[in-house]
Amino acid sequence: MTTPLTLTPGRRPDGTALLTVSGEIDMSNSDAFAEALAKALDATAEPLVLDLSAVEYLDSAGLTVLFNHADRIELIAAPLLIPVLTVSGLSEITRVQGTDGPAAG
């Protein structure tokens, strides 16, 4: 059994490609996640917005997928994920936009 993960491709009102992710990302489903992300990126030449605000858990396997496409994605993440993105250094090379969710800590 892999960890439940839902990936929904779409477009933002401004037309930017959007991939909305909800659930948890860990090593059991990071391949599926990587595949979906690559597919979404293939479908557009523009940067892609990855909405992680409904992701409750992201581990280093998920981070690696994000690092591989760091220059083509923008992230939306709940405060719970911010420490991981910060600690890993991803937020230094990728734009991360926080949500209004409850502040972590």
């Binding site: 059994m1 892999t2 960890t3 439940p4 948890e24 860990d26 090593m27 059991s28 858990y57």
Partner: peptide
């Protein structure tokens, strides 16, 4: 097994 991770969490 990685499939156990979600349960453990």
């Amino acid at each position: 097994e990685s499939s156990q991770l979600a349960l453990v969490r």
